[in-house]
Simulated assay, not measured.
Amino acid sequence: MDRTKVAIIGSGNIGTDLMIKLLRHGRQLEIAALVGVDPESDGLARARRLGVATTHDGLDGLRALPVYQDIGIVFDATSAGAHIRHAEVLQADGKRVIDLTPAAVGPYAVPAVNLDQHLDAPNLNMVTCGGQATIPIVAAVSRVAPVRYAEIVASIASKSAGPGTRANIDEFTETTSRAIESVGGAATGKAIIVLNPAEPPLMMRDTVYCLTDGGEPEAIRASIHRMVASVAGYVPGYRLKQDVQFESLDADACAAILRAPTAAPGLKVSVFLEVEGAGHYLPAYAGNLDIMTSAALAAAERMVELSQRELPQGKQEVA
């Protein structure tokens, strides 16, 4: 079977790690080009050594490469601002796009939660690293108990936050908060990111708080464990750091959380996660980057798998 050719725009940490994952684990995908703007970047140098076509002239340089006409999917690992232009040009050229920035031009996609609903979208947004780690937990809770409020805190090593991450802090919180609601199922969502300067660097840690309208703790716990196993299927370093915690809250405590004059009693669910990177290009503590590239790879593989299934019988490709 011929594999679908893909390109990556962005030769920084995320783009380079994704390239390595594609080279090592791409089943139906073939990395055809890595695009950057710094001719001296380590990512472009590594791509050249590995025989991958490169350009340091950004999207315009990619479009000028001979292989561009054969590329079916483009991953954008640049910035939210840059993606706006990239999305317009790539869509006009008939390229499908997987967006690893918080631009959210296309629908939010979290592989363990809602990927199959959006596989035909021309532009798929991977939310944020915090979103990929925590939204599955909110969704796991909401499928067995109504979630009135969900708050997530993503703590990442400062060393794993490159220029793109730092430039997109506002977009991170806004995009993640919206996706907690629209994908996770919470009535109200809030996201916080912490850049931890500790030495040696700490692994990505994520805390998820959900305020529910009751619900059975054992049913919630079981749903969360099933979801953790699902995410770990494509992000092996994803795990619970400790057991799920529950606390019954009275009406006053719930009203304070919701910032409302009155509220019904509820159940507070606390989940503590750790994400260890696979170490393909980045150190193990950079789980925040690994979960993004792993989710993007899983999404693209699923997109191609579905397109192969939908080919007319007479046009099925032969392995």
Rank of each mutant, 00 (worst) to 15 (best):
residue 40 E to S: 15
residue 40 E to Q: 15
residue 41 S to R: 08
residue 42 D to R: 14
residue 43 G to K: 09
residue 44 L to G: 10
residue 44 L to P: 07
residue 44 L to E: 05
residue 45 A to Y: 08
residue 45 A to E: 11
residue 45 A to I: 09
residue 48 R to G: 01
residue 48 R to C: 03
residue 49 R to P: 02
residue 51 G to L: 06
residue 54 T to W: 02
residue 54 T to Y: 02
residue 57 D to A: 14
residue 57 D to E: 15
residue 57 D to S: 09
residue 58 G to K: 10
residue 58 G to C: 10
residue 59 L to T: 14
residue 60 D to I: 12
residue 60 D to C: 05
residue 61 G to A: 14
residue 61 G to P: 14
residue 62 L to Q: 11
residue 63 R to P: 06
residue 64 A to V: 08
residue 64 A to Y: 05
residue 65 L to V: 11
residue 66 P to L: 10
residue 66 P to C: 14
residue 66 P to Q: 10
residue 68 Y to G: 06
residue 68 Y to L: 05
residue 69 Q to C: 10
residue 70 D to E: 15
residue 70 D to Y: 11
residue 71 I to E: 06
residue 71 I to T: 10
residue 71 I to W: 13
residue 72 G to M: 03
residue 72 G to C: 05
residue 73 I to D: 02
residue 73 I to V: 15
residue 75 F to N: 10
residue 76 D to I: 15
residue 77 A to Q: 09
residue 77 A to H: 09
residue 78 T to R: 05
residue 79 S to T: 15
residue 79 S to P: 13
residue 79 S to F: 01
residue 79 S to Q: 11
residue 81 G to P: 02
residue 81 G to N: 12
residue 81 G to F: 11
residue 81 G to K: 10
residue 82 A to W: 06
residue 82 A to S: 15
residue 82 A to P: 05
residue 82 A to Q: 08
residue 82 A to D: 12
residue 84 I to N: 04
residue 84 I to D: 13
residue 85 R to P: 00
residue 86 H to C: 07
residue 87 A to N: 14
residue 87 A to Q: 13
residue 88 E to F: 12
residue 88 E to S: 12
residue 88 E to K: 13
residue 89 V to L: 06
residue 89 V to F: 11
residue 91 Q to G: 15
residue 91 Q to P: 03
residue 91 Q to L: 14
residue 93 D to L: 12
residue 93 D to G: 10
residue 93 D to N: 10
residue 98 I to W: 08
residue 98 I to V: 15
residue 99 D to A: 14
residue 99 D to I: 03
residue 100 L to T: 11
residue 100 L to I: 13
residue 101 T to K: 09
residue 104 A to P: 05
residue 105 V to H: 13
residue 107 P to H: 07
residue 109 A to R: 04
residue 109 A to W: 02
residue 110 V to D: 00
residue 110 V to A: 01
residue 111 P to F: 01
residue 111 P to H: 04
residue 111 P to G: 00
residue 111 P to D: 00
residue 113 V to L: 02
residue 114 N to K: 04
residue 114 N to F: 02
residue 116 D to Y: 04
residue 116 D to V: 13
residue 119 L to T: 07
residue 119 L to G: 03
residue 120 D to N: 12
residue 121 A to E: 07
residue 121 A to Q: 09
residue 122 P to E: 09
residue 122 P to D: 12
residue 122 P to K: 04
residue 124 L to N: 05
residue 124 L to G: 04
residue 125 N to V: 08
residue 126 M to F: 08
residue 127 V to A: 02
residue 128 T to I: 07
residue 129 C to S: 14
residue 131 G to V: 04
residue 131 G to W: 00
residue 131 G to A: 02
residue 132 Q to D: 09
residue 132 Q to V: 12
residue 134 T to K: 00
residue 135 I to C: 01
residue 135 I to M: 02
residue 136 P to K: 03
residue 138 V to N: 01
residue 138 V to H: 00
residue 138 V to Y: 06
residue 138 V to R: 00
residue 139 A to V: 01
residue 139 A to Y: 03
residue 140 A to I: 00
residue 141 V to D: 00
residue 141 V to W: 05
residue 142 S to N: 13
residue 142 S to A: 15
residue 143 R to V: 01
residue 143 R to L: 00
residue 145 A to G: 03
residue 146 P to I: 02
residue 146 P to T: 12
residue 146 P to D: 09
residue 148 R to L: 13
residue 150 A to M: 03
residue 150 A to Y: 08
residue 151 E to D: 06
residue 151 E to S: 13
residue 151 E to Q: 14
